[in-house]
């Protein structure tokens, strides 16, 4: 079980959190003309990286904040956690 540092609450066990996908994906702006391909990439296409990965998690049984975790997908090493509005 991972031990994750919520940027708001501190170190907690993984069972308090929910995984939320790739944090590097940016939702296209509203009301913007966008090609089928771009939209398809946003909705469906995700990289399955081996190694350092920036991902979203939500502290679902805690402060309920979404935040970013930089984690190695192979070793589970967590390098850094950031608030949702912070950049690495």
């Amino acid at each position: 079980m991972l031990h994750i540092k919520c940027p708001h609450c501190g170190m907690r066990s993984q069972n308090e959190f929910a995984y939320g996908g790739d944090a590097s994906v940016k939702r296209p702006e509203l009301n913007k003309e966008i090609s089928d391909l771009e939209w398809d990439n946003f909705v469906y296409l995700r990289k399955s990286l081996r190694g350092k990965h920036l991902e979203l998690w939500q502290h679902i049984s805690g402060c309920r904040q979404w935040f970013k975790v930089q984690r190695d997908t192979a070793t589970h090493e967590i390098f850094k956690t950031l608030k949702a509005n912070e950049d690495i």
Partner: peptide
């Protein structure tokens, strides 16, 4: 739904 709303408020449209 709650998580969905929180995601858009906190991450997409802060």
């Amino acid at each position: 739904v709650l998580s969905h709303l929180e995601y858009y408020i906190q991450v997409v449209w802060p």
